[in-house]
Design a protein around this nucleic acid. Sequence first.
DNA 1: TTGTAAGCGTTATCAC
DNA 2: GTGATAACGCTTACAA
Lengths: 326, 326
Amino acid sequence: MATIKEVAMTAGVSVATVSRVLNQNGYVHEDTRRKVDEAIAKLNYTPNEVARSLFKRKSKLIGLLLPDITNPYFPQLARGVEDEMQENDYRLIFGNSDERRQKEMDYIQTFVQNNVVGVISSTNDPDTDIYTGLKIPMVFLDRTSSGQPSVYADGREGGKIAARELVKRGSKRITVLQGPTHVQPAIDRYEGAIEILEEQDVHYNVLETTSFSLTDAEVWAKDLFGKYPDTDGIIASNDIVASAVLQEAHRLGKRVPEEVQIIGFDNIPLSKLLAPSLSTVHQPAYEMGRAAAQLLIQLIEGQYTEQQHMKFPVKFIERETTRKVD
Amino acid sequence: MATIKEVAMTAGVSVATVSRVLNQNGYVHEDTRRKVDEAIAKLNYTPNEVARSLFKRKSKLIGLLLPDITNPYFPQLARGVEDEMQENDYRLIFGNSDERRQKEMDYIQTFVQNNVVGVISSTNDPDTDIYTGLKIPMVFLDRTSSGQPSVYADGREGGKIAARELVKRGSKRITVLQGPTHVQPAIDRYEGAIEILEEQDVHYNVLETTSFSLTDAEVWAKDLFGKYPDTDGIIASNDIVASAVLQEAHRLGKRVPEEVQIIGFDNIPLSKLLAPSLSTVHQPAYEMGRAAAQLLIQLIEGQYTEQQHMKFPVKFIERETTRKVD
DNA sequence: TTGTAAGCGTTATCAC
DNA sequence: GTGATAACGCTTACAA
């Protein structure tokens, strides 16, 4: 790689001048500029970002921390973030946290060591000092912290919608899969659902679950139909769990949605491919990713930002695991 | 952030000494080491990786370039890479290329500008000078270049397996969805399948397709049954396309696998959740990601590596879109 | 065993 | 308009 020094030499000017044309600041004569540009082209020079970063104590790097890219919900989020960052010339250092504190800490530390100018994280502990002590802008994605910028979906409303739609469609003995109690969106959905169920004339049960993983979900699905064989409406904690439930229903010969209705959350791409296709509560993941990135960029570039808490609306996607109604 | 200078001051030694204990090289007295360690702990010091990187012209950063993390095949690959890198203290700068030359070039350029020590890429043009001109180690993942290290699956064998299994199970009028002709694994699968079909006593058609996207696939699925309504066996170019085909078959009231068998490639997580669940040719994506990372690390650290071309075996996963046979 | 100082590739300050 | 040069935080000869 050529350096600014070599460019300066072949253009017959000083490094200062080259730097000026590079950064388009200071005065530089038109002829000089041309000579420099030629030298740059000839040497195929691009500035060393590391040296820049060292001097300015600022890079063009952003840290992105997601629980697990292998969970089909997160790629969408990630893609939204990446697209927006890409367009604004920021690059992403990416890591999976597996929701483990230690991994989060390690990643955040290396983010800082690499002079990232901002971080986006979907953590379950936004208020821990891993984050509160951070001296660079950060935004929580798919998570909330009252004190800090966050982009998330209206989980509570999502839970309400799910419950309402099931009740409206005639389910009388509903089972709610609670979802992990350490994940905020899961809690919100759960509480929203319960709020509605309480005020309706329906019976409901709650089954505790502790993760969003498919393997676990298959076990809970069996549990569910074992414990509550006559349930006729299921609110799953997300689409993955819903898929497992649907599959188990299948295996048991239960007709969906005639005998049992199922509703999920997220609207991951897979959900429309299932047979019957999955009714679900849509979260605009890609848009949320983009929004988080935009917000972070504004924070970084010191622009005025009124809205630091963006709660995205969710909506019911009617498919085939719920019955039709007028 | 504290600097090495401050550590040196509070420990009452020179920066050189601090550097020595940091990097565990050179001589340093036990007592001195202790003083330094204490200062480090007290100041909560961690070395500035940017400064390190500038001096050594080497970072702990790796560039990872994937076509589209939103395609369910890639998160697995990415996770494999990340896990291995993480365990070896390397971090990832990640980008989606969308298979566009320009984006690839831009990313590779910024990788270099950021002193990455290696790159892993799933590109369709491994032999373009974007890569051949690269002066840092690189490995192609899910792609092959004869000249350069590559980790990929045996697509040709995969194609053969798919064709054999379909024929063995009685399909007589097979349709092969060709897959994008600019993507090597797709070509390999296609050629493998054709090779077998040619030598068997079956009739077959080929339908050209140009991407792996779900939206496109839905169109091709309609096309397929429009053009070849009596087809009784379909080799899809991957699981996404297979899912779309399955769904269309469903819509048309065709019974799967009785009237038409379907087989995909990849064995993405979704494939087992479909109803009927999808028979497919498994690619060990996670393991491939890990292997690529291992290989790259060996290359970076100058270890001896006999195997620079790793072709992973694939295998048939029998599920419900193919008929049973003894 | 430890310290001094040069240098990694930039940017910005200050002279000229 | 342009050029020297110090500084960013670190590592590594080289000296002591």
